[in-house]
Structures are given as structure tokens and as C-alpha cells.
Design a protein around this nucleic acid. Structure first.
Ligand SMILES: [Mn+2]
Ligand SMILES: [Mn+2]
Ligand SMILES: [Zn+2]
Ligand SMILES: [Zn+2]
Lengths: 130, 130
DNA sequence: TACAATTATGCAACATTGTTGCGTTTATAA
DNA sequence: TTATAAACGCAACAATGTTGCATAATTGTA
């Protein structure tokens, strides 16, 4: 049950996430929300958006959770967001990279649920020599 | 410069990490250290061991940093610990799985440094039906 | 062996990220 | 319009990690 309501703050948070080209942390999102709501509310909204499969969580290589819109996520399965993420060591931006089917080579006695693949390095804009 | 000393606490921490079959967080390591040193010291020892390429860091899927011995790490390159990690959703244990060469399919304008690949699911011991 | 130089430690304080409880407000649908 | 469940604000808490600084320990050298 539990009907999820579409509140002003929720719309704002989703709009912020969707209009950004890279993933964002709760801290970054809250900074953009312009005190429309409490920081705890942002956390709770993010939870709901994840549950609705409108956004997905990505743990960055420093351990901070980031959020990005679910554009290429398979809504049916509700669990597989198994695309690649790129974490730029220069600008610190975390980018979703779709279309990256990987072949895993895990011992068969391990039951795989989700795949988390993040690559660090230098992103195109940071590697451009001016 | 900066000669790294081999202190009692450092030996103890390394021994704990090496004798454990799975990766451990600072919290778990400190719990085993039996008050031989302060918790801050454990953090600083872990830093040093990482610098020496004796252990490597793994960010678990919940964002907590774990540490495991560098058995299959390439000490020459000092950066590539690109083996797979398995995070069991049942027992919460994080295991290093060697021998997992993966083919990435990243746009060529991204400069890759490190690959972080963690798979969640159920580990062999948790999936054994008794 | 004693000393000096420098690394390592303890402790307290702080920072960041995330969570929980609870009373109040608000959205939604009947 | 009103009842009800969902969402919210606020305060407090928890977990994890960091920093500054005075003190202690290790190690090479005299
Ligand atoms: Mn993504
Ligand atoms: Mn490992
Ligand atoms: Zn960049
Ligand atoms: Zn398990």
C-alpha cells in the first residue's frame, strides 16, 4: 500500500537531479534546494524516489552515496542498474555511462544479485588541454 | 623520505587483516586490536599500510571502507587492484576474488586509472542449505 | 650505550554523512 | 469538507573519518 505523494519538495529534488548532467550527493542536492525543506526531508525524498525507481543510488569511490536519474534503468526488474559509472579524480564528478555490458567471471557458487562497476580516472572535459 | 616504522600496533593491525579471510572495516579491526592502541592510530596505520601496498582499500556497497591484504595486487604499478569483490547481502562479508580480468567498454575520451568492481549477492557459505 | 632526529601515538575536539522519534502539517480521495 | 495516511520539521543521536598538538617511542649514528 503506502501511496507516495507528489509534494513540492519532492518535485524540486527530482527536478534538480534530472537537470544535472552528473550524479549528486545529498549534500549537493540540499544545497540546491534553497531551504524549501529540511535536510532530513531530502534524505527521505531520495529514499522514496529510489523506491519508485525514478533515481538510483551510486556509492562513489570515497564512500559517499550519489544519486542519478534512472534513464537507462530497467524499471521492470527494479534491481538492475548495472551500468558503469565514471568517477573523475580531477573534477570529482560522477557520471553514468550506459551501454556497458560486462562479462563476469565469478565462481558459480556465488549467487549474483547486483553489479557495481565504477571506474576512476580523468573525464573528457578535465583531460582537454586548452 | 619518511621512513615508515614497524611498530607493535602496526604489526598487530597487519596480522589481523592478513589472518582474516574477508575484508574488514576500521571498526572491525579496532575491535580486534584489543586496546593496544587508539582508534585514531588504527586509521593512521591503515593509511601507512595502504601506502606501502601491503593492504588495499575497498569501498563496500554501503559506503564503508574495508581493507584486505594485497596478495594478488601488482606492487609495481601501485595503483591497480582491479580484481573483483563480492559483497554478501546475508553475512555482510566482503571477499576479494582474484583472477577476474574484465573487458571495459568506455568511450575513448575517458582516461581510466582504476577499476572498482563489486558484486552483491549470496556467498557460498550463506547459500548452502543445511 | 647514549643521543638526536623524526616517526608514531594519545587524546580531545571536530566534521561529515546518515538515521530515528515524535509531534505537527499537508496532500489526497471519499 | 473532512478523515486519514503520508510527509515534514526539529532535535537528538550514531557511525565513520579527520585534525592539531603535546608526548612517547623507534632508529640510525656518534
Ligand atoms: Mn548510473
Ligand atoms: Mn581485494
Ligand atoms: Zn572531470
Ligand atoms: Zn555470506
Amino acid at each position: 500500500m503506502a501511496i507516495i505523494r507528489n509534494t513540492i519538495a519532492k518535485k524540486a529534488v527530482f527536478e534538480i537531479i534530472q537537470s544535472n548532467s552528473t550524479a549528486m550527493s545529498q549534500t549537493e542536492i540540499f544545497a540546491k534546494v534553497n531551504n524549501i525543506c529540511d535536510r532530513v526531508t531530502v534524505y527521505r525524498i531520495l529514499e522514496r524516489l529510489v523506491k519508485e525507481v525514478k533515481i538510483h543510488k551510486i556509492v562513489n569511490i570515497n564512500g559517499v552515496i550519489n544519486y542519478a536519474p534512472c534513464n537507462s534503468c530497467e524499471h521492470e526488474q527494479q534491481v538492475h542498474h548495472d551500468h558503469l559509472h565514471f568517477s573523475c579524480t580531477t573534477c570529482k564528478k560522477l557520471t553514468c555511462i550506459s551501454d556497458n555490458h560486462i562479462e563476469l567471471n565469478i565462481p558459480s557458487n556465488y549467487q549474483v544479485a547486483e553489479v557495481f562497476l565504477t571506474v576512476s580516472g580523468i573525464c573528457p572535459s578535465c583531460s582537454t588541454i586548452l
